[in-house]
Amino acid sequence: MPYSTVLRTLLAKTNKVNCLTMSKKTQEELDRWSKEVKRGAVTLAILALLSKRRAYGYEAVKLLDEKMSFLALEQGTVYPLLRRLEQRELLKSEWDYEDPTKPKKYYAVTEEGLLALGAMAQAWSDLSREIRDILSEVEQ
């Protein structure tokens, strides 16, 4: 059976599954796959958000929350990631003690981070185009 036919059949089945209720196994597979995709995408999303303007932790959590439903992240994921990106010198941070009861650690993208963001954005764009092409072939 040709590859595209297999994919078409699968897609039809998936649509049928979505229309009804997702089986436990499918849900598990989707969760696993989502986790893998998120793991890669979240770094790109954070770098992209912070390249436009600096933000402190809570702000970053809320920005991600507002802008993305698929990438809905817990604060327990965002803060450690911000710290890891800072350690990898893709982000830099600065404390703002203007309000002493709520000191804010602002994160901004470094030069190195901007370069990485550019490369990641290009790779992401290529990847999504290729995936879209494959999926559109299947849908035809």
């Binding site: 402190y56 932790g57 809570y58 959590v61 604060q75 710290r83 709520k102 000191p103 804010k104 650690k105």
Partner: peptide, 14 residues
């Protein structure tokens, strides 16, 4: 200490 302060700010704002 930095993580504690970040959490503190997060909790107050939330």
């Amino acid at each position: 200490e930095d993580s504690i302060v970040e959490l503190q700010t997060h909790l107050i704002e939330e």
